[in-house]
Amino acid sequence: MSRPVTDALGRIHSEGPAASSRVDDPDADLVRRVGAGDALAVRALTARKLPRLTALAARVLGDAAEAEDVAQESLIRAWRQAPVWRFGEARFDTWLHRVTLNLCRDRLRRVRPGGPQDLESLVDPGPAPDRGLEARDVGDRVAAAMAILPARQREAVVLCHYQEMGNIQAAAALGISVEALESLLSRGRRALRAALSDLVA
């Protein structure tokens, strides 16, 4: 069986017999049109990716305002990348996630040199007046539990659980093997279960 590996740009390659296979990308058509200057495609790709990248950054950074800045920067890089994108080498969504994660890591290093433990005090899932108090409380507890996870475990859980990425795509976005991803997920979920043990049915 071939094993996916990634290069420094987040492009997916396969080792073994499937090495020559091309990556099937559901965003390819939109990216091609964005690269050709199609304004409708820009709008469509924004609608598809901006909420997704904002959610990713918010869950990794624990700050809605910073998440918005990161998502904006990621999409601006996407506009620059679209005309020169090499189709078939990687999924555009995986590349975007990798860019967003790198921007998040830069911010965490710059703003919070103390490390992930400093995140807990900065968690702000935002007000939700239409939800019941209990649901918001649970959300806050989850956010706090996620914030104290080691960074790599938090990223793995966010990619697989919230961003609904498959293991190959998530491993590519993190630049690790699928085995390493599974280990991060397992440890991350075990830590979350322990932190939320009074809420787990």
């Binding site: 959610a55 869950r59 899932p125 959300g139 956010a143 919230y162 979350l192 787990v200």
Partner: peptide, 16 residues
């Protein structure tokens, strides 16, 4: 699944 349900209670902000 019980842990999955809890995790989904954390909603992410929408872009402005």
């Amino acid at each position: 699944r019980s842990l999955d349900r809890l995790l989904f209670a954390w909603e992410a902000p929408r872009p402005t």
